[in-house]
Amino acid sequence: MLSVENPADLAAHIGDPIGPGPWRAVTEAQIAAFAGLSGDDHWIHTDPARAAKETSFGGVIAQGFLTLSMTTSMLQEGLQVRCAARWFNYGMERLRFTAPVRAGDRLRLRGTLAAVEPAAGGGTRIEIDVVVELEGAAKPALVGRSILLAFA
């Protein structure tokens, strides 16, 4: 785990790895719950029988934005800033969903600290290149650059 006292301390660690974190299973129940919350209730996410019959996935697949939303907590498993009073997701750059995530698949995040700079309002802008690995797969489920704002 990359651990520092203050957000600005991360500047000394540009290029350092973050993670990998532990593997996490994505369940059919999580996919269904996210469908209800997000309104992304296409049958490929909510109808296991139809998804098994009409796709090559063998069942439902997770919404890409479910996988994306998991990156927030997965980053916390590999990055600790002890005196950060608050964090904000600022955005993602170059986001790609590169492989489907099936119910039952396991994911983990591996990242690289890419940039750290002062931000307006006394904060620190942190950019992390993230890869959400899919256990046993040649391609990751997601790649992109996460941009965070942290305040001490």
Rank of each mutant, 00 (worst) to 15 (best):
residue 78 G to K: 09
residue 5 E to N: 02
residue 69 S to W: 02
residue 120 A to S: 04
residue 55 T to M: 09
residue 86 R to A: 07
residue 151 F to H: 01
residue 123 G to Y: 04
residue 111 G to M: 10
residue 34 F to V: 08
residue 28 E to N: 04
residue 9 D to E: 00
residue 92 M to A: 12
residue 103 A to N: 00
residue 139 K to R: 15
residue 92 M to L: 14
residue 73 S to M: 11
residue 52 A to V: 04
residue 19 G to R: 00
residue 5 E to T: 13
residue 116 V to K: 00
residue 104 G to K: 00
residue 112 T to W: 01
residue 85 A to S: 13
residue 104 G to A: 01
residue 117 E to N: 08
residue 13 H to R: 15
residue 144 G to R: 05
residue 30 Q to A: 09
residue 80 Q to R: 01
residue 114 A to W: 03
residue 112 T to K: 04
residue 30 Q to H: 08
residue 48 P to I: 11
residue 45 H to E: 10
residue 58 G to E: 15
residue 76 Q to I: 07
residue 38 S to P: 11
residue 71 T to N: 11
residue 14 I to Y: 01
residue 131 V to R: 00
residue 48 P to R: 06
residue 127 E to H: 07
residue 16 D to K: 02
residue 128 I to R: 07
residue 93 E to Y: 09
residue 139 K to F: 01
residue 58 G to W: 05
residue 121 G to L: 00
residue 86 R to C: 14
residue 108 R to E: 14
residue 105 D to S: 12
residue 32 A to V: 15
residue 146 S to C: 06
residue 139 K to V: 02
residue 91 G to E: 12
residue 35 A to E: 11
residue 71 T to F: 13
residue 14 I to V: 14
residue 133 E to C: 12
residue 133 E to Q: 12
residue 55 T to F: 01
residue 44 I to T: 03
residue 118 P to K: 07
residue 152 A to Q: 13
residue 79 L to S: 02
residue 134 L to P: 04
residue 149 L to Y: 09
residue 47 D to R: 04
residue 48 P to N: 14
residue 37 L to D: 01
residue 139 K to T: 04
residue 43 W to K: 03
residue 137 A to Q: 14
residue 40 D to L: 02
residue 23 W to K: 06
residue 85 A to L: 12
residue 13 H to G: 00
residue 17 P to S: 05
residue 30 Q to V: 08
residue 127 E to G: 11
residue 93 E to H: 13
residue 21 G to E: 03
residue 40 D to K: 00
residue 103 A to L: 11
residue 84 A to L: 12
residue 49 A to R: 14
residue 49 A to F: 06
residue 10 L to K: 01
residue 83 C to T: 14
residue 11 A to Y: 05
residue 96 R to F: 03
residue 111 G to C: 08
residue 36 G to C: 03
residue 136 G to L: 10
residue 46 T to M: 04
residue 26 V to D: 13
